[in-house]
Design a binder for these strands. Structure first.
Lengths: 227, 227
DNA sequence: GTTCAATTCAAACGAACGTTTGAATGTTAG
DNA sequence: CTAACATTCAAACGTTCGTTTGAATTGAAC
């Protein structure tokens, strides 16, 4: 035929990755069997092992596909903002927005299909498997270091370990918010009507995180007393 | 024999619950097989089905054992504080401390063995299985409602949906902090030396959460713009 | 048209899973 | 002692898991 379909560097792999993203989110890694996954993707059972090698390798590929570009974009945005500021340290709020925005923008982008991934990612931070957490940690490490440096420049008066803990809290708030989209209903008393508005959520989340990051620090006596 | 061991309302059940708590935390529910679990507990393979009925029923029992007393204690503490205040609304910080303290105190109490449970609990909020999240949600519902009422009295000027979101954020921060005790190292750059000091952590966490709860609210224009 | 490598396919592999069974053992009461 | 019950035990149940196999099919190069 004259009009050839573009070669998608093998569509089978994409079908598998998309199905895996959705099913891993719904049922977890161990709860998703290869038979269900390949059936959903419309490919043969052996296709995963042929194209990816193993189920574990597929899991890694699922995360790499989205996480690598996302964290690269985060770092690039911080670099751009710092260059734009001309040596001046950034506003804490701007740094937070750069980090939070990258996740929330993926929720909106339905074409990217990243909504499933974001929820999957949120719950994988606390996955029982040590190897999976190590994988995620490794993929996040460069961005984490970059943001820590930006925060240190923005908040030179804050002790190092205090900053580490507050970044941990902020990271956790974001992760949980993305993962547990249905737990809000538990607090609210079940009203799923409130459709996810990523823009509004970003404002609420940023406001919360900025306040937490800049919260009054413990006095030396408090730390002493606790120790 | 004359000296009989006290009957612990069947020690086998306790051995199973303790082993389940530890192994569920380490490997997750699906990642923990009955054979490994019963071997760790030092009981026969069939003991779980005999005493609890099924693996799912065991999971529920693991949560009920700790969660019911914990949330009962939380509600009792709020009731006590409100009675002590004599009709006056409570300080937001006091409410937060009542909620956070119940979790963190269990970490310290090594006799209770609740440290495993707390970490297990933290990651179960985002468990893929809908039935498990429903179980946790049901066990939390009464305490959640009680705390929401206390917050509404403490912050009468805050819109209802704003409060719901901020409680969601606070709950998430706590859950993640408890579950991902090793992710701090990712941010800090791997230093497991800093042993968990629950008292100090409570101060840090409370300071962060109070600031977040009382953060400046979005202006009406922001909400309008986003919608 | 033939060749050759890449991919898909149906079928099967051994292992591990949660659960059940029926006999053996321990415990309590008459 | 014995009857009745509760608990433990080794063994097996049927099912599902991730993976492998070897033949069939496809698509491009010569």
């Amino acid at each position: 035929m004259t009009l050839r379909a573009v070669k998608p560097h093998h569509e089978t792999q994409l079908r598998i990755l998309d199905a895996a993203e959705e099913l891993f989110m719904q049922h977890g890694f161990e709860g998703t069997s290869m038979r269900l996954l390949t059936a959903r993707a419309g490919v043969n059972l052996a296709a995963v092992n042929y194209h990816f090698g193993s189920k574990d390798a597929l899991i890694e590929a699922v995360f790499r596909r989205r996480l690598d570009p996302m964290n690269t974009a985060r770092i690039a945005e911080i670099d751009r903002m710092e260059k734009e500021a001309g040596g001046q340290p950034l506003e804490p709020e701007a740094i937070i927005r750069a980090f939070v925005g990258a996740s929330l923008r993926m929720i909106e982008d339905s074409k990217c299909g990243g909504r499933n991934f974001i929820r999957l990612l949120g719950r994988t931070y606390t996955d029982p498997s040590k190897s999976i957490r190590a994988l995620i940690g490794g993929l996040y490490a460069p961005a984490m270091e970059r943001f820590k440096a930006a925060f240190e420049r923005a908040l030179p008066q804050m002790p190092r370990d205090e900053l580490v803990w507050r970044m941990h809290f902020m990271f956790g708030t974001l992760a949980y918010t993305l993962a547990a989209t249905d737990t809000v209903q538990l607090i609210a008393g079940c009203k799923p009507e409130d459709r996810y508005d990523a823009r509004l959520l970003e404002e609420r989340l940023t406001s919360f995180l900025v306040a937490g990051l800049l919260a009054p620090q413990l006095g030396a006596k408090d730390v002493k007393k606790a120790a």
